[in-house]
Design a protein around this nucleic acid. Structure first.
Length: 220
DNA sequence: ATGACGATTTACT
DNA sequence: GTAAATCGTCATA
C-alpha cells in the first residue's frame, strides 16, 4: 500500500518546506519516527530524485554498542554525528556500499538516524539507471526494490561520502521535505530490532527500527 | 605498517 | 539457507 500523496495530506497545498532545525534537534527515536513519511530529495543535474521514507533506525550515541560513536569515539569518519541535528552522515562499508544518516540531537550529541528504505516518487527512471549497474543485463528491478535497503537507496539517489557533513537545512543537492506535519500514529509503525548489528550484545535487541507497517518498499 | 572487520547486497546451493 | 565481493576505517604495534 502506497503512502498518501502529499496533496492529500490535510493543510498541504503543495510546496512542501524543509523542516526547521528544531525538527532534528530532538532525541534520535523521536526523529526516527518523525521522519517516516517525509520526503528525501536529491537534486542531480537539476533533476529531482526523491522518495518517501518508510524505514529508519535510531543510533543512540556513546552508550549504544551498535553506534559508530559507541564509547564516545570521535573520528574523521563519524565527526558529522557530533554535529547539530539535520547534518548528513554518510559512510562507506563492506568495501562497496554507502549508508545515509541524518543526525539528531544538538551539537555535541553523537546520535543519528539511519534511513533504510524509501518509496520511490520522483526521478524513478534515473534511479533505475543508477541501480541497474548491479543487475544482470535484461533483468528489470521492481520499482519497490529500487530503494528497499540503506545501500540501495544511496545508489539509486547517487549519495556518497561527499555528502557526509553537509547541513541538510542549507544544501541544494540533498535535503528533507516535510510532507506531513505530525508523526505517524504508533499504529502505522512497526517497531523491531535493528538489522545487521548482531555484534552489539544487548543493544542488538533493542526496539530501535521503525517501519511503516506492511510497506512493500521496506528492506528484506 | 598491519590486520580484522563491517549499521550490505547479490547470487548461488 | 550460506558465501563472496571488496576496501576504508580503526585499533594495535
Amino acid at each position: 500500500m502506497a503512502l498518501k500523496r502529499e496533496a492529500d495530506v490535510a493543510g498541504m497545498g503543495g510546496g512542501d518546506g524543509r523542516p526547521a532545525r528544531g525538527f532534528f534537534e530532538r532525541d534520535a527515536v523521536t526523529v526516527a519516527r518523525a521522519l517516516l513519511g517525509q520526503r528525501l530529495v536529491r537534486v542531480l543535474d537539476g533533476v529531482r530524485l526523491s522518495g518517501l521514507i518508510v524505514e529508519t533506525e535510531a543510533y543512540l550515541g556513546a552508550a549504544d554498542r551498535a553506534a559508530h560513536t559507541f564509547g564516545g569515539r570521535r573520528t574523521a569518519r563519524n565527526e558529522p554525528m557530533w554535529q547539530s541535528g539535520g547534518t548528513a552522515y554518510v559512510y562507506f562499508t563492506y568495501g562497496m556500499h554507502h549508508c545515509f544518516n541524518v543526525t539528531a540531537g544538538k551539537s555535541g550529541e553523537p546520535v543519528a538516524v539511519l534511513v533504510r528504505a524509501l518509496e520511490p516518487r520522483e526521478g524513478i527512471a534515473r534511479m533505475r539507471a543508477h541501480r541497474s549497474s548491479r543487475v544482470k543485463p535484461g533483468q528489470r528491478l521492481r520499482e519497490r526494490d529500487l530503494c528497499s535497503g540503506p545501500a540501495k537507496l544511496c545508489e539509486a539517489l547517487a549519495i556518497d561520502r561527499r555528502f557526509s557533513g553537509v547541513d541538510m537545512l542549507e544544501d541544494g543537492a540533498l535535503f528533507i521535505e516535510q510532507v506531513r506535519r505530525r508523526a505517524m500514529s504508533a499504529k502505522m509503525i512497526a517497531t523491531t530490532a535493528r538489522i545487521g548489528v548482531g555484534y552489539a550484545g544487548d543493544w542488538a535487541e533493542k526496539p530501535l527500527r521503525f517501519v511503516v507497517k506492511g510497506h512493500a518498499c521496506a528492506s528484506r
